[in-house]
Amino acid sequence: MQSTANEITDNEILSLIQEATSLERGFKLLMQKYQERLYWHVRRMVYEHDDANDVIQNAFIKVYRSIQKFEGKSKLYTWLYRIATNEAITFINKKKRKATASLDDDEGGISTQLAADPYFDGDQVQLLLQKALETLPEKQRLVFNMRYYEEMAYKDIAEVLDTSVGALKASYHHAVKKIERSLRAADNY
């Protein structure tokens, strides 16, 4: 089933979704084709599996609600990325507000959070990299993740984040340099 989903084109998926009788099948194929990429994209933003699960479910429910209005002005996958990214940013902001309201500053930051996550078993270098990423401004972190881990073209990232390719290149270069400095400062390199 997975191979079917990966072979099918976006246009074929969209045609299935447009028909009430094949909506469910079309949506299943859409999820099977894109859910892993989108999940990992979200997971890199929110870190914990449970949070990523909530965000990705909400994002796909929003997609289900609005897919029939998708006009095809952008690529299907950049449209999906945009929905998932917005959902993740909303989630992160809500979490920050809650933490501020309860004065519950997440002590130890990402290292404590990841240590408590049963679905994280990264080594020291991976943890260091995550710590370095945490120090980046949110947009730089997003750009870094999409370019470094997901190897997305600048043009596609620009479509997802609604910004220019030039600005993205500058963001990515700054992010790479900062992370390199953080890793070197940690005396491991």
Binding site: Q35, H49, Y64, G122
Partner: peptide, 26 residues
């Protein structure tokens, strides 16, 4: 330095997560 690093992130998933995700979302 970064280009030589292993891109593995150490994030794990519950078993058969994506199969369940499709059904749950639908």
């Amino acid at each position: 330095l970064l280009s030589k690093l292993d891109k593995g992130e150490g994030f794990q998933l519950p078993p058969r997560y994506f199969e369940k995700l499709t059904l749950e979302v639908l």
